[in-house]
Amino acid sequence: MSGLARFARNRGALIGLVLLVLLIAVALLGPSLYPTSPWRLVGRPFMAPFAMDRFPLGTDTLGRDIAAGLVHGARVSLLIGLVSTLVSLMIGVPVGALAGYLGGVADDLLMRFTEFFQTIPSFALAIVIVAILQPSLTSIVIAIAIVSWPPVARLVRGEVMSLRSREYVLAAVTVGQSTPRIILTQVLPNTVAPIVVMGSLMVASAILLESSLSFLGLGDPNLMTWGYMVGAGRTRLLDAWWISFLPGLAIFLTVLALNLVGEGLNDALNPRLARGRD
């Protein structure tokens, strides 16, 4: 069975994919749906959802349109999730590939370095980095990338190490291919599947991390984010719980969709669990 067929048979993955496509559509169409700034005070504060047609999801503590905030927040979440994941892959893949292929002292040094970053409580490190560099899109992406790359490095190293002793890689050595060529053409292409799977899951955790940071007030002050919206509503939980509830739900659905898609990809690309006979 092909990978695509396996993915399509996975109900959860399809649900996730639909959710994700909707979300991306919202993020792309956002500016045309709500062309004005989501920070603008447009109505009475604390309006409940469905109470007024103009604000289908109500207004927040200051009278900002929650629907507009959610739509603009989707852009930010997806953007940060994607970019920071790419950056951490750019750190993690080379570190892991070098450590795994070279082995020996280089492997020792690189892995101690990786372990160090894995030991540090990642969220605390992200807080410290963003706080000290001052909150901005760049500092948030840097912080998320710095705390997210070690698992990538470990994964790639493990894969590369097992591939390196695989016989077809040895065969490439014996026919005289150069080391960089072997890494690029024989080893890395066979690690793409697990990296893609991990990447999709990392986008999810990056979005969680970003929302946690902005919940604590460490979001980019110019950007409306879901985490910020949850935090802003938390003083009035008793009488206006929806102000915090709705953006939280948006985060939850996004992360869930990405996890479902990631798992679907995992089943589709790494059919290791399929049991044979005899």
């Binding site: 695989r166 016989e167 077809y168 040895l170 066979n190």
Partner: peptide
């Protein structure tokens, strides 16, 4: 060289 495992020796 000719290797042992016919399933692992070809990319």
């Amino acid at each position: 060289m000719v290797f042992q495992d016919p399933f692992a020796s070809l990319n």
